[in-house]
C-alpha cells in the first residue's frame, strides 16, 4: 500500500510452521532505516514536512537532512580527499 503516494517496501516472514506474515515497509527519509508498518502498534514515528515523508522517529532524524544529501556530502568529501592526495598539480 503506498504511503503518501510513495511505493513501500515489502517484507515476508515465513514462520516456524510455514505460515507467512507480510508487512509493508518504508524507509526513513533521513537515515534509510527500514520500518515495518504495524497498524495499531502504538509506536511513535515521525514525519518530515520538508521531505513530505515519514521518518523512523529517532531523535537524530528530527532535523531535516535527506539521506541522499548525506550520501552526496560523503561522496564530495571522498572526492576532495582524493584530490588532496593527488596534489595540486594534477
Amino acid at each position: 500500500m503506498p504511503i503518501l503516494g510513495k511505493p513501500t517496501g515489502y517484507a515476508t516472514i515465513t514462520g516456524v510452521y510455514g505460515e507467512t506474515s507480510e508487512a509493508d515497509t518504508y524507509h526513513c527519509c533521513h537515515c534509510q532505516y527500514q520500518v515495518h508498518v504495524k497498524p495499531g502498534s502504538g509506536k511513535t514515528r515521525g514525519f518530515c514536512f520538508l521531505c513530505h515523508a515519514p521518518t523512523c522517529g529517532r531523535g537524530k532524524c528530527q532535523e531535516c537532512t535527506p539521506f541522499m544529501r548525506k550520501i552526496e556530502e560523503q561522496e564530495n568529501r571522498f572526492r576532495l580527499r582524493r584530490a588532496m592526495e593527488r596534489g595540486y598539480d594534477r
Binding site: 514462520g15 524507509h27 550520501i71 571522498f78
Partner: peptide, 25 residues
Amino acid sequence: VPLNHRGTYRWVAPPGGEFVAPATT
C-alpha cells in the same frame, strides 16, 4: 529483525526505495 531460527525473512524494496551506499571506496 528478530526472527525465529526456524523462520525466514525476505525484504524487497520498490524502485526508488532501495538502500543506497555512497560512491566512496
